[in-house]
Amino acid sequence: MSGVVNVNRISLNQITTENWSLREAIDGCVRNEIPTISVWRHKISEVGLKESKKMIKESGLGVSSVCRGGMFPALTASERVQRIDDNKRAIEEAAELGTDVLVLVCGAAPDKNLPESRKWVQEGIETLIPFAEQHKVKLGIEPLHPMYAADRSVITTLGEANALQNSLASSQVGVIVDVFHVWWDPFLYQEIENARGNILGFHVSDWKVPLPDIFKGRSMMGDGVIEIPRIRQAVEENDYHGPIEVEIINQDIWDMPGDETLKLMKKSFVEHV
């Protein structure tokens, strides 16, 4: 297996150019020969699903995923039903835009009860499976770094995500491997092997030291400590050969001219992924 990544696998996760509209991001990808985009739902809502679909189709871009579904835990049953309804809309959006992957950020514990919230996450995904299957969209459980357990996800390791996927026992459910969230895990490579055949996405960025910010702390590949090529080769050895999304949440990068970001992104992708 070659250790060199094919630049044609690059996908712009739209959050990397947060200051751009969907139209601007699509045009930027076309100008910079980036073949694939991952679309965020708040960008879809700005122009509507119909117009989003039209723009993407006319551009010729592939769609690697839609971000995001999830956020299942809530204090009341009615709130949890509302979360399910919103996830169904997200599944419909993914299907309309031509991707078969909806990324799930599972949600935090609203009442400090982590076990209960993890149960709600499982119940929420289980409820969605028939609807996802009907729309031919797979649900990608993305474990987030433990520092996000308080406000974004009670699923914090790839091992947890794998266990959840196994307990659901559905081919509609898989996992997302994002290097920013999992690089530190002493069981990472064993868990990537355990996820064989169920990896639905691979996301790259870097962990700069010191971390500049908890939420907006991701850096461009090569600017931090993550052994990205080793993780990439591990997911490839376990049957993931799809698009590689560059997902960078960083105010300084957001404030750069978008085309400059995409040029730097491609250069860093070739050299450090």
Rank of each mutant, 00 (worst) to 15 (best):
R41C: 00
E46Y: 03
V66L: 08
F72P: 02
K54F: 04
S59Y: 13
V66K: 01
E46L: 09
S45K: 12
S45Y: 11
F72V: 03
E58L: 13
T36L: 08
V63D: 12
E51P: 04
G62S: 15
H42T: 00
G60N: 10
K53V: 11
I37Q: 14
G60V: 14
E46W: 06
K54W: 04
K53N: 08
S64V: 13
W40Y: 07
V39A: 09
R68I: 00
I37N: 14
G70A: 14
V63H: 09
V39L: 08
S65Q: 11
I44W: 01
K54P: 03
W40S: 06
M71C: 07
K57D: 15
R68T: 02
F72E: 08
M71L: 09
P73S: 12
G70W: 05
S65N: 12
G69K: 08
R41N: 02
E58V: 06
R68C: 05
G69H: 04
V47A: 05
L49K: 05
V47N: 03
G62N: 12
L49A: 11
L75I: 04
C67P: 07
F72Y: 15
G48K: 10
E46P: 01
K54I: 04
S52E: 08
K57G: 08
S65L: 07
G70D: 13
S64A: 15
G60F: 11
M55I: 15
S38F: 01
K43M: 02
A74Y: 05
L61Y: 06
K53A: 14
R41Y: 00
T36D: 15
C67V: 09
M55K: 07
K53E: 12
W40P: 05
G69D: 04
T76K: 04
S38T: 10
R41M: 00
L75D: 01
G69N: 05
R41F: 00
W40T: 09
A74M: 07
M55R: 12
K57F: 10
L49S: 06
K50D: 15
T36C: 15
I56V: 13
M55Q: 14
G48D: 10
V63F: 11
F72W: 14
V39P: 09
W40H: 04
M55D: 11
G48R: 11
S65K: 03
K43D: 06
G70Y: 06
K57L: 13
T76Y: 04
G70F: 07
I37G: 13
V39M: 07
S65A: 14
V63Q: 13
